[in-house]
């Protein structure tokens, strides 16, 4: 399994439109809904918001990974978006979030292969070179190719 099994080109956006954390969350939820993995946008948004309340998912280094585990999710999926100007995500190190990964995980699911893949994504994001390459991609295809490396 690779990360690209959990995402596709429609879920990748090299220019996010929203200019606040809330707008970007909404925008990415729409994308996930567009590929049909959400039973209820409202319930999934709640899961995302609840996680942000427990502590910001802005992990610094210009990255935010809003994620929600919810019954409203039918299969694990990852959306990726770039906001070049950055957006305030209340990050621990005060940096603006530029690379945003939204992760949707079902409450219960068979096996944990998808969790392993998400673990690999998390570990890969700690790699500075990988972050640099991601922020500089111009096209959806380039981004897709980079994410394909995660397996």
């Amino acid at each position: 399994m690779k990360l690209t099994d959990l995402t596709n080109r429609e879920l990748i956006s090299t220019e996010l439109k929203g200019s606040t954390q809330k707008e970007i969350i909404d925008e990415m939820i729409e994308k996930l809904d567009g590929v049909g993995v959400l039973k209820s946008k409202r319930k999934f948004r709640k899961a995302i918001e609840k996680r942000e309340e427990e502590g910001s998912t802005g992990i610094g280094f210009g990255i935010a990974i809003p994620h929600g585990k919810s019954k409203a999710v039918t299969s694990p999926q990852v959306a990726f978006g770039i906001k070049r100007e950055g957006v305030d995500w209340k990050s621990a190190d005060g940096s603006l979030a530029k690379l945003i990964f939204m992760i949707a995980v079902p409450e219960e699911s068979a096996g944990n292969e998808h969790l392993k893949i998400l673990q690999m994504l998390s570990r890969k994001l700690m790699n500075e070179e990988f972050r640099e390459s991601l922020i500089h991609v111009q096209t959806t295809d380039d981004a897709y190719k980079l994410l394909e490396e995660i397996e």
């Binding site: 992760i103 995980v105 998400l118 673990q119 998390s122 570990r123």
Partner: peptide, 10 residues
Amino acid sequence: CPNGIAHTYM
């Protein structure tokens, strides 16, 4: 971490 999906591994 609370959900055990991302921060734990980072």
